[in-house]
């Protein structure tokens, strides 16, 4: 049984086919990358697995279970986390305050607990805080936990988004261009973080444009072009795949393109 299995998935918006009959598998504990030119359907592909979009046809399985029609929040509870290209952080609030809510899905306190501040509420608040702190430590931000988000750097915001996803106790994390808009040094740090996540047992699936980064860490790469899968394999196979070179870079070898 594959960890995540996508079978013949297609998504059409009106007349436009954003994702075209894609079969794909994601292996547990590995780093999988999806690359492709702008508008290749990468984010849509994420949204299909994630549940934001319902596919026109095809199915998605998570640990053998059909999650094609599962609402987003229930997917999260199964252990599917994701980040967005633009992180919607709560700028005026502190770093830790942004992360605490990430553990909300593992708590049960309801309105009643809130109003009467029950034992459960207090205990779960404590747990959520602990979890948030652990997540921040994992991404190396525990020292600035009490700082307002509006004052931290772009790179720290990217890490924060990962910490937030981490607080949900995920089995798999979908990262949508985690390294966009940050400099090469920071990109290296982020790559390390992703490897650390994978090493800790969390499956990583990422969309990324920074080829060097991807080639250096991905176990498997899928290439999308105009919604269709045109190649799949190890970084080496992808690098030397003539179809990919043709479609993706107009003939230039990928390794030099970054």
């Amino acid at each position: 049984m594959a960890f995540i299995e996508v079978k013949g998935i297609t998504k059409k918006f009106g007349g436009l086919t954003a994702v075209d009959n894609v079969d794909f598998e994601i292996e547990q504990g590995k780093i999988t990358a999806i690359i492709g030119p702008n508008g290749a359907g990468k984010s849509t592909f994420f949204n299909l697995i994630n549940g934001f979009h319902k596919p026109t046809s095809g199915r998605v399985f998570f640990e053998g279970r059909d999650i094609t029609k599962l609402p987003v929040h229930l997917g999260a509870r199964l252990g599917i986390a994701r980040t967005f290209q633009t992180t919607h952080l709560f700028e005026q609030s502190t770093v830790i305050d942004n992360v605490i809510v990430g553990h909300r899905l593992r708590t049960k306190s309801k309105l009643f607990d809130a109003v009467f501040r029950t034992k459960r509420e207090k205990q779960e608040e404590h747990n959520a805080y602990q979890k948030a702190m652990e997540s921040l430590e994992f991404v190396g931000m525990e020292k600035i936990a009490q700082v307002p988000v509006s004052t931290i750097t772009q790179e720290e915001k990217k890490r924060l988004a990962i910490a937030l996803a981490l607080a949900t106790d995920p089995k798999v994390m979908f990262l949508d261009e985690p390294a966009a808009g940050i400099n090469p040094d920071e990109t290296e740090g982020l790559a390390q973080l992703m490897k650390k996540l994978a090493a800790s047992g969390i499956t990583i699936c990422t969309i990324e444009h920074k080829m060097q980064m991807i080639m250096g860490m991905a176990d498997k790469i899928m290439v999308l072009n105009q919604g269709a899968k045109i190649a799949e394999g190890t970084p080496n196979e992808i690098k030397n795949n003539p179809v990919v070179i043709e479609a993706y870079l107009g003939g230039e070898p990928i390794a030099e393109a970054n």
Binding site: F52, V72, V101, R104, D113, A114, T168
Partner: peptide
């Protein structure tokens, strides 16, 4: 409370709140 944090998360971004497992 955690409930209040949930509400604020929804205000912040409904999509993000959903990916955090919140039934918006």
């Amino acid at each position: 409370s955690l409930t209040g944090r949930t509400y604020i998360a929804i205000r912040n971004s409904e999509e993000l709140a959903q990916t955090l497992g919140i039934n918006t």
